[in-house]
Design a protein around this nucleic acid. Structure first.
Lengths: 321, 321
DNA sequence: CTGTTAGCGCCTTCAA
DNA sequence: TTGAAGGCGCTAACAG
């Protein structure tokens, strides 16, 4: 019995194989504990049945959620997922040093900024298709877009309706850069503030991880006093902000009303429960994989794009308790 | 110029290559945006420079932390990391359906239960070395052990010292199974309770994810009333427990004092800040990689084992606020 | 229905 | 110091 026959059987190709031969192959494979060498397989076929997920800041809860959902979706379809993160260098270029180099059939990238991303070259992708998920508008790419703008504006109006008159935006220092990305949160914030006749106020943190939030917020409060409403770039930062507020004797949800973005698991479990602009994570991930699967099958199809809208979830962090 | 020469240059082997040739190779590689085919490389060398991390419940914050630390450690050493999770089937056997199949040079497994694990066959590992990290005692395996027992007992004594007289243990339903694993938390709990002359009380949840906690805890309280102290299997469950307590009108940290395990980021940011038995995550991960790297280099070295002790961090969830 | 053949891209002798 | 040759384990075309 040749290896070719074995290959036919083991891969379930509907090639004609005698039932008896098939069984013998399966039995022997079982007996010897046969496991295919995927490297050889990949080399021979040119496909790896593996997809990469690139995300910023894997340690943030929102990323965990995206990883989790994407993984579920992909494994249902008998693909593997490699997970890695990227950073941005000071000059805004992609720092790809942390990307896993295992060859893949395609890439799903989360929250890539707008426009041609320096460092995201074709040779990085090695001709493999890329699908983007995120809050920024990307053109000429398969893209699942989550539009934060309407609900960010709604969040601001909500804060106003519960009595806030000084509403600040807590945002990582990519601020100027995000302006060029057309951060929809920022746009929604500015639009709503203008409509309400309020002045914008920005609290800028060095980066988006939790430890960066406290110092920036406390420094701002020390100089300018505390705002009565705080719109946060994401829930992860909201949690750090709530802690910092308590540390300077303010009660989040009472002295300072909070609304964040993302809708992470923590937002409902935290105390007080956090108001947040929720991303439809499952839907995003399912769509991204659908786009990618189609593109892998047929690279020639036209650009696939879809815009989903976030949803405002109101909880005690902005209504009081 | 032959591919062999190119290979020699590109891999930095200290084989004799003329400086001029070397430069030419590098220049051309640069020009053509050459990226090696890792599948081919792996096939030829038999090594992938990739390590797998197997963890339970990737979505839990503690797992994120372990993933993150391990990844840092490994990438420093120019290895890649594939991340996946496993489950246990009802019969206690390993459910390996979610493990990434990309071939690796070794595996780091987090919180494998004690004893021969059904389903963890040699063919699964394909002869590749395994290093285990976790709270259970494993024998005959390279293993970084975190001993929870002393600090669990200390946690119980601490709860007693702040006035708790009815201290329950909140634990996933692997309970009986964990008994056979010799869960050190359980051991510490039982030992300390006995010493204090208190009766043990167990609140068992269906699994260890947050949604399972509320129902079990509320049901328990409805029948037996609330304990005044709660020792939790992990911080993730503590967070869900705190929420459930509030939902039935009890204030965590006052009516019910809480201590969890792990020391996740959330534990400090949560309100009230959570007392917890902290795992030395960075140290664990660094050690695990050190063990694995040594084992990969020389499969013949004797079993490597190390026991680290957890550390009790006391915060307002058990002292009141 | 099954075996033979020829690579996939790279590394590693070995000989020149 | 370099090139040629063989092989890693598998699949895909082509004969038989």
């Amino acid at each position: 019995m040749s290896d070719a026959t074995a290959s036919r059987v083991l891969n379930g190709v509907d090639a004609p194989v005698a039932a008896e031969t098939r069984e013998r192959v399966l039995r022997i494979a079982e007996e010897m504990g046969y496991a295919p060498n995927l490297a050889a397989k990949a080399l021979a076929t040119g496909r790896t049945k593996t997809v990469a997920l690139w995300s910023v800041n894997l340690r943030a809860p929102h990323s965990s959620q995206v990883v989790y959902c994407t993984r579920d979706e992909i494994m249902k379809n008998d693909y593997d997922l490699t997970i890695s993160d990227f950073k941005f260098r000071a000059d805004g270029a992609l720092d790809t040093s942390r990307l896993i180099s295992w060859p893949v059939d395609g890439v799903i990238a989360v929250d890539l900024p707008r426009g041609p991303v320096p460092g995201l070259s074709n040779s990085l992708l090695g001709g493999k298709p890329l699908v983007s998920i995120g809050a920024y508008v990307l053109e000429n790419v398969d893209h699942v877009h989550v539009d934060f703008a309407p609900m960010s504006a709604a969040a601001i109006r909500h804060l106003h309706s519960v009595g806030c008159r000084r509403i600040a935006y807590l945002v990582p220092n990519w601020f100027e850069w995000f302006r060029s990305c057309d951060d929809a949160r920022l746009r929604g914030y500015e639009t709503a503030m203008a409509q309400l006749g309020l002045e914008t106020e920005f609290i800028v943190t060095e980066h988006e991880a939790r430890p960066a939030v406290g110092p920036a917020l406390k420094a701002h409060i020390a100089i300018h006093g505390a705002p009565d409403g705080l719109f946060c770039f994401n829930d992860n930062m909201t949690i750090a902000a709530a802690r910092a507020l308590r540390e300077v004797g303010l009660t989040p949800g009472r002295d300072v009303k909070l609304v964040g973005c993302d809708g992470i698991d923590d937002s409902a479990d935290f105390y007080p429960p956090l108001s947040t602009v929720v991303q439809p994570v499952e839907e995003m991930c399912a769509l991204a994989w659908a786009f990618l699967a189609r593109r892998i099958k047929d690279p020639e199809i036209p650009i696939q794009q879809m815009t989903l809208t976030a949803k405002l979830e109101i909880r005690e962090s902005s209504t009081g308790y």
